[in-house]
Structure formats: C-alpha cells, structure tokens
Write a protein that binds this DNA or RNA. Sequence first.
DNA 1: CGGTTCTTTGACGTGCATCAAATCCTGTGG
DNA 2: CCACAGGATTTGATGCACGTCAAAGAACCG
Lengths: 222, 222
Amino acid sequence: MLALIDVCQAATTARGRLCACLDPRAIGRLRRLVGDLHLPRHSTIFAAGDPTECVFALRQGVAMTFRRLADGRRQVLDFLYPGDLFGFTMDGCHAAHAVTLTRASLCRIPLSAAEGDADMAERLHRAALRALVATHDGLMRIGRMTARERVAAFLHDIWSRTDEPTDLVLPMSVGDIGDHLGLRPETVSRAFTRLRADGLIGMLARGTMPVLDGPGLTIRTV
Amino acid sequence: MLALIDVCQAATTARGRLCACLDPRAIGRLRRLVGDLHLPRHSTIFAAGDPTECVFALRQGVAMTFRRLADGRRQVLDFLYPGDLFGFTMDGCHAAHAVTLTRASLCRIPLSAAEGDADMAERLHRAALRALVATHDGLMRIGRMTARERVAAFLHDIWSRTDEPTDLVLPMSVGDIGDHLGLRPETVSRAFTRLRADGLIGMLARGTMPVLDGPGLTIRTV
DNA sequence: CGGTTCTTTGACGTGCATCAAATCCTGTGG
DNA sequence: CCACAGGATTTGATGCACGTCAAAGAACCG
C-alpha cells in the first residue's frame, strides 16, 4: 500500500516524463496488476533476447538501457530516473539490456494490464511517445553536436527531467556517459573540465554535480 | 475507393514496418477518418512547431523527418518508405520537420481517430514502438560505428525494410544520408566507394543502388 | 545542349581517440 | 579514525578517422 503511494509521488516528482500511467485514478487497477521489485546496485533488470512480458516503471534510484555490438562496443540508449517507464519492445523480445546504476525500486507492469483497459493503454502509449522524442534528442546530440555540446545538452536534459535541481544526481560513470554520447571517457572528462572553467557546472563529487547555470547548458534547436 | 485498396497494398508491401494500421478490417473506419494527400517532390508535410492534428501514413514515394540546430546543422531522424507511419509527438506540437523526397501520396490520420477506437489506438501504439526501436538502431549506428559500418548498416536497414530488393530505391542525396548518419557527404561517398570495391553493392544510378550482397551489409548486435 | 547542382576524388587540417601516467576517490579493514 | 588497495578520473602527448577545402567529372533539367 505504501508502495502505491510512492508510485504516485514518483509520477509527480519526475513531472511525468515517461510516466503518466501512475496517477491516483489508476491505483485501483494497479493494486491488482503491478508487481514490486527491489534491486541492488549494478543488477540486471532484463537482457537482450529476453521475452517481453511487462514494462517497468522506475520508482527510486537510477538505471540505464544499452545495446552492444558483437565486438563489445556499447551504446547506452537512455538513463532512467524515478517516474520513467521503459522496456518497450515491438516483437515480444528485448533488443536492449537494462541494469540498475544504484539500488533501485521498480514496478513491473504486465503488458496484459493494457488489454481491455483503454486508460492504461493510453498511458503506456504516451510513455512510448515520450521515449521516442527523447531518443530523437539523443540522435540530434550524437549526430550533429561537438563533444562539449553533447555533454552540455546531456546535462541540461537530465537537469530539466529531474526538476532542475541545484545538485544533479549522476551516479553513472564517465564511461557510461561516454557510451551514451558516442565519446570516450577521457573526452567526457575534458568536456566537464571546460564547462566547469566556463562557470556552468561545479565539481562532480559523490555522484553529484552542482549546476551553476542550467539554462546556459541549453543547445537550441529549430 | 481505389485509394483505400492502395492503402492495403502499401501495408503488405512494406511488411507492416511502421504501419499495421491499414489492414482490410479497418477500411470501414478509414473511409470516414482518413484524409488523402498528394504532394510533389521536395514539399513540406509539416514543420517543427506545427500543432499535431494527425499522424501520416506514407502510401507511395519516399520522405524524411529531420531536426535542425539554431545554426543550421541538420539531423535526419528517419527516412520513410511506403507503409511507414510518422508524425508522432508528445506535447501536441511537432519537434521535427517532414518533407517528401519524391512525389508522394499520404494518408492523414487524425489523432481523434484513435479516440474510442481501441483497435486504431493499438495500431498507432505499435507503429510508435516500431519507430522507437528504429531510432534505437540509429543511435547505435551513429554512436558506436565507423563511417563504413554506419553506411553498411544503413543500407541493410533500408534493404530489409523494403523487402530485400536487388535494386534499392535511394532517392535521397548523399548529403541527406550524411545528415542521417552523422557524416559529411564526402565521407558517405567514400564509404560507398569502399563497399562497391568490396563487392557488396553496385553503382548508384538514377536513385537506385544494386545490392549484390545484402546479408554482407549486416552489422551484428548482441 | 548548356547551365546548374550533385557526386567523386585528392590534399590537407582538426577534433576526438588512443596510449600512458599521475592523482583522486571510495570502500575496507586494522 | 586512519592507512591502504583498487579502481575511476584527470591530464598530457601523440595518432588517426573523418572533416574541410578544392577541383574535376557526372547527372539532371529546362
């Protein structure tokens, strides 16, 4: 029961980014449908090839999804924060891996929850659309921005997704960020150094980065 | 009436890639809901900032969606082939531009078509999921592949999406492909030259590229 | 057929990757 | 609370894949 209340809080906290499925009106249904999951840091949520039985809503903690090439090269598709929904597939089988970056709590939402429930189906659809435009943002970053711009746009994205805090929660490694932005860890580190020199951010410490000028991290699109 | 038959053909031809919404059972509803659109080459379908009143299904021709940075840099998000659905947004407003690359026919599907129609809503949802995994493929390509691999994977993608033809329809310019893959036109051209030297493809002529070894263009993921 | 635009090829430059080493965290145990 | 080991981050030096610039050649279209 407490879990369900947390769920609602997560939905409001994250400004519903990927997750508009968890509002109070849905609680009656959720009680029957939702499975609860608590995982330690660096554990697998699902792997590529696994059958898709449900999607996941992150309640607490941070996670990420990624894919690999045969020789081990890795592309981080997305970082997940509380309120985010993930695990959408199209052929009944995951193409990506998902792992936690911190200790985390999740809801398992069986796909069957949407059957015959137009409201739930609508919520899942909206979450998928959010994931789609977020991935388009990612393409724009990797395809046409410099290293400095990619890192700035990435920080701005996380910052705006998590309620524009003065201290950004970044529990992922510099290597993880690099694998998200198409950069090596050394290059990400150098970009941080330059953004810090420009007074946009502070010193990363204990998985936390002070944001001194959030709007200054914006890279505008038309 | 003929148009509706074409619609069904488009759906089967493209193996339903983005478009599972156009099968015979839906025709009764489509007759009331679908708008028809015929456009010349290089015309705008929608622009960034336009309100989202409907999604589009491409019946004939080729089109693309893209976004721009303030200084003009362009990222092509996707190339669209017959059967593809596009124009999904999440806040009632397009973030991308869409233009035709050839003369094209489209269906306009008002978003209201999904209201109270669970079947149509389900079809739109599946199309959105397809777009999502297609965009993940794009991220993987741009983020972690070499120029040659990006072009090979891109050709393989279009090839497999359009029923593995011996002659691939590529009406877009080398610059358009570059803006899709995060490369300059010269680099795309050089990659073509190398793939041709390796016997995987033939000479691009009149917007058509012979595919000599389709499977050889695969870049495997795990 | 001529002008225009796009593609191809070559020469050269640059931003990021790679390699390497020093330093800084962080978690652990005394 | 401090010392230490192991890993991650930072910084520097160097190399290379792709970008940039330029020009020739091919395709397109009125």
